[in-house]
Write a protein that binds this DNA or RNA. Structure first.
Lengths: 324, 324
DNA sequence: ATGAAAGCGCTAACAA
DNA sequence: TTGTTAGCGCTTTCAT
């Protein structure tokens, strides 16, 4: 099927492309009669606008890039769903790019996004260094960090209250008499991991227990890549486990149970069960009200059209006991 | 930061844009010296190509649209992950569009994809009618259906072997003495639901049980939208449940257990636990080897570059008992 | 209310 | 090996 262009419609009707363009874009300076003829011809001929040409000329693509570690993580998949729905309603498309927690891949993703002239970028950074975010800042494109932020960097973000998250997990355990939690997950350079651990430590401190680095077990945060954590924990003294995420908590629970019994408490984060009902008891600390997705979508659009220039926002969290 | 164009580089070096273009695109007809100078200048000046302009001129965007019901479904999120990884490796970007199982939204998504001049479309159709797929066929853009196909329509697809899936679930139950499974899920017009039910019926038939429509309970397949299925099942005679998907199985299991006891077998599909380890016993029939993602990526690329023109492929399935 | 024309940044065909 | 030129299909400015 041959592609129909503005010119084809213009020729068909004996008007100019400018006229057709105005009608199709709702610029109201064309007579009612011509307008109707154009609209009719466009429908009849099956016209679909060439967004590429429009974008090249206008300088806006109505597209944003969503750069995240791994869309197969249910937490990110859910946030992505909410973002895409909201962006689409506003006429935006979203390009999704996985980084697999790899800095090099992340840089490639940023370059790809820029090359495709996206109007803005939403980035959940892998955080091995600040380099990529600094590169992004230098470009001058609207962007915001989501889910993870750099304390040492001047950049917009929308994140969970991670310190409080860890604190809530810690208090939950402390109230039930546990005194030796071990934190399993992510690397120390990943902010949510660090802050959740610090929050956990703060809660334990309130009951007279001081946690040190021995209670922090770094592991790869990628889905389904934990390995035999239970074995690595052999020899360590602990009476409860706090995992970096629900995904990790779910994955290591069977190992832990086999080695340390069924009653060992395991707490996760993200509250996956709140949007993806799962039929087993689990406790998790997650954001209330759908998380950072809605805010992130609003903010990036606002930054694109210039109605907002800065955003440092933290989403509140709560502890959930599912299927109690 | 001002945007650097080919022309800027050309002016800087006293060559023409054509020369610069050739160097940057690796067309090897430029002297080593000029090449080096161009490459150096590009790096120095922070050049990032304008893909829009390149695409407008060349007619290729190196972009595909992935149109699916709901990215927050872990099964689709995982398939999406595999597809995006593979496409990215080949230089393609993927635009993700949720349809929410809505035909109108799906049509919009197809139009959006076309307007953005994607090179190809991967579509998991909502199937309320064949209309959108026929529209897509008419456009002449390379596309393939994923996960769901239309028996009555001539269109490429890569899908699970759904009939066998249902059959395996049925045989699993039959072998354990169950004789009255009820199938919960999706609407009759959604192909995998229909075929899984037919497979289930085939298996039951082998042990002398004939299933009729009374054993098919249609419900909304969207994540977290089941409602009180257990209550709706009240009065129906059944000894086991086969759900349209793991997501549905997981969601309704607590309701069912509360009403019908902990021992009621519930079987799902997609084998989510195989890529997202979950710490509870569940049985599910899913595709082996990562599912249709890899094939879908290969096929759409092959169709785009003309090295393949048709594909009717079914991915084999197996039954999994997780955390037995 | 409509036309005419420039040009967004690039690729590709052809000249030199 | 490099330069020249003509668009890709649209938006936008300026005339009419």
């Amino acid at each position: 099927m041959k592609k129909v262009t503005l010119k084809d419609i213009a020729n068909e009707l004996g008007v100019t492309v400018g006229t057709v363009s105005h009608v199709l874009n709702g610029i109201d300076d064309i007579s009612e009669e011509t307008k109707l003829r154009v609209l009719d011809a466009a429908r009849r001929m099956g016209y679909i606008s060439n967004g590429l040409a429009a974008s090249l000329r206008s300088g806006k693509t109505k597209t944003v890039a969503l750069i995240i570690p791994d869309i197969s993580n249910p937490h990110l998949a859910y946030q992505t769903k909410l973002i895409e729905d909201k962006m689409r309603e506003q006429g935006y498309s979203v390009i999704i790019l996985n980084t697999n927690e790899d800095e090099r891949t992340e840089e490639e993703a940023i370059r790809t996004a820029c090359s495709r002239q996206v109007d803005g970028i939403l980035l959940c950074p892998c955080q091995r260094s600040t380099q990529n975010v600094e590169f992004l800042k230098g470009i001058g494109l609207p962007f915001a960090l989501i889910g993870r932020y750099f304390a040492e960097l001047d950049a917009d973000y929308i994140c969970a209250d991670d310190h409080k998250s860890g604190y809530l997990a810690g208090r939950f355990l402390a109230e039930r008499g546990y005194r030796a939690p071990v934190f399993v997950g992510a690397y120390e350079y990943i902010e949510p991991g660090r802050n959740r651990f610090l929050g956990l430590a703060a809660a334990m401190s309130e009951v007279g227990v001081e946690l040190d680095d021995m209670s922090f077990f770094p592991i790869d945060p990628i889905v389904n890549a934990c390995g035999d954590v239970a074995a690595r924990l052999e020899g360590v003294k602990f009476d409860s486990v706090v995992a970096f995420s629900d995904v990790i908590a779910f994955e290591i629970t069977p190992q832990l149970r086999e080695r340390y019994g069924h009653d060992l408490p395991v707490i996760g984060f993200d509250a996956i069960s709140s949007h993806l009902p799962l039929p087993f008891y689990n406790v998790s600390v997650g954001m209330i009200g759908g998380g950072w997705a809605a805010k992130a979508a609003d903010v990036i659009i606002a930054k694109i059209d210039g109605s907002r220039d800065t955003c440092r926002e933290t989403i509140d969290v709560a502890l959930f006991e599912f299927n109690k």
